[in-house]
Amino acid sequence: MPITASSAATAPTGGSGLADVTSSDAALRRFLHGLPGVDQVGAEARAASLATRSIKTTAKEQALDLAIRMVDLTTLEGSDTHGKVRALAAKAVRPDPADPACPSAAAVCVYPDMVATAKETLGDSGVHVAAVATAFPSGRAALDIKLADTRDAVEAGADEIDMVIDRGAFLSGRYLQVFEEIVAVREACARADGEDAHLKVIFETGELQTYDNVRRVSWLAMLAGAHFIKTSTGKVQPAATLPVTLVMLEAVRDFRRQTGQMVGVKPAGGIRTSKDAIKYLVMVNEVAGADWLDPDWFRFGASTLLNDLLMQRTKLRTGRYSGPDYFTLD
């Protein structure tokens, strides 16, 4: 699993004319509100149009394997146990025990207290451990608690931190507060050996509601140094949607145009079928570009998706439809 510690977002604003936009709340507001608007109907129509692409045969094979490699296999339940996490981690490393050629998932995504367990099972498989932190999923805690939560996960060995933003602050227009919190969490992702955990910033787009907000928060997070921008916690409906992801892909594309730096995108929640996953990949390909068709730059936050990908993969290889009994539960 070739995710490398690519330092996507160090000093993202240097030399791109963006240095001043975070200098004050007013400046940040001016910048975010100066971004081009998003027409809802147009954005949704574009997403729907991309979703009609027909991906067949060899293209489908490639897409399924790529999608498997992009899965952040997730369990975020109050009922999670060490046993459950160990099983999930094993599944991430070897999704299809019957086929050694089947690639591993990108990561397992767990609560901070399960990081050590996951890490232990994954070993040097290359599959990362991602931990949701910062009082996930609501984010309603004091900053020092969120930072402690983050540090705890990083110390336990998390390769990636999935933080949530303070949606209340964002919706009430306190953009600089949101920005500074992301900066602080990113600092908390640091390790003494320099192998900093990568930071994914979750917006909970279902609560932000408008695509204008999605575009603004995407830029805000990228300016603050996010390595990845992520749609949802999976705990709020709607979670990931194609048009929301479209707007985020446009944002990372434009951010690279302006700064030269790439930021990853992770839709999470509600993506359950191979068909859905392939629609996302088509969108990545045609909106952000083929450079993003890599687990370093695009992930699926999902749990049930993996098995559907495996079933489709098997169908393509064997020529017959498979059934859930032939794949492991976790």
Binding site: S54, I55, K56, A59, L66, N285, A290, D294
Partner: peptide, 12 residues
């Protein structure tokens, strides 16, 4: 199509 890890196969 831009060079891509998955070029779309013909889908007639």
């Amino acid at each position: 199509t831009p060079s891509s890890p998955f070029d779309y196969a013909p889908a007639p």
